[in-house]
């Protein structure tokens, strides 16, 4: 952040707050305007731009992250509200050694996405779904993913990807065919 921005923000009339986030296991303390959304703080202040903004009013789901393991729209939260929380973003899905999360591997196998702008939100929603319900049916997958909009795929390949991930996470390492 530039000194000019900070100085201007201090005179903008709102509160400036210190927020201690832990993002993908790393401590990420920031000093920001209280009005800044978690999504903007992640993208612009923490520098993790994998979380995307599609609508900024809580409908498209592209900004979905996990907060203490629970899925949430990062555009519908002030960063200040989640001071002290553990946040997981798409950048935190793979293992430290680069091994991809089963959902990432499955989406590659299924050719789940096209432009993939929506992918971060879908992946985080899918991770949350599989944590809640490790063996979802196809219609349960559709229902849970209905909070995320995709404009490219017609969703079928994304649902296929989650099904492959389910099989992989339940011990079928091939994931079966898509």
């Amino acid at each position: 952040m530039t000194a000019d921005r900070l100085a201007a923000e201090e005179s903008a009339g709102g509160s400036i707050v210190d927020v201690a986030l832990t993002v993908n296991g790393r401590s990420a303390p920031v000093r920001v305007e209280a009005r800044r959304t978690l999504s903007d703080v992640l993208r612009e202040d923490v520098g993790l731009t994998g979380t995307h903004l599609g609508c900024e009013h809580g409908v498209c789901g592209a900004c979905t992250v996990l907060i203490d393991g629970q899925p949430a729209r990062s555009c519908l939260l002030l960063a200040a509200q989640v001071d002290g929380a553990e946040i997981t973003t798409i950048e935190g899905l793979a293992e430290p050694d680069g091994t991809l999360h089963p959902i990432q591997q499955a989406m590659m196998q299924a050719h789940g996405f096209q432009c993939a702008f929506c992918a971060p939100g879908f992946l985080m929603s899918a991770v949350a779904l599989l944590a809640d319900n490790p063996q979802p049916t196809r219609s349960e997958i559709r229902e849970e993913l209905a909070g995320n909009l995709c404009r490219c795929t017609g969703y079928q390949s994304i649902v296929d990807g989650v099904e492959i991930a389910v099989r992989r996470m339940n011990g079928d390492s091939s994931g079966g065919s898509s």
Partner: peptide
């Protein structure tokens, strides 16, 4: 249906969209 080259970055959050440039 070979593996998509694009997915290595797009599925890991490493894509660079215009909004990601700061």
């Amino acid at each position: 249906s070979v593996r998509r080259v694009e997915d290595d970055r797009l599925l890991t959050g490493a894509g660079v969209f215009v909004a990601d440039r700061n």
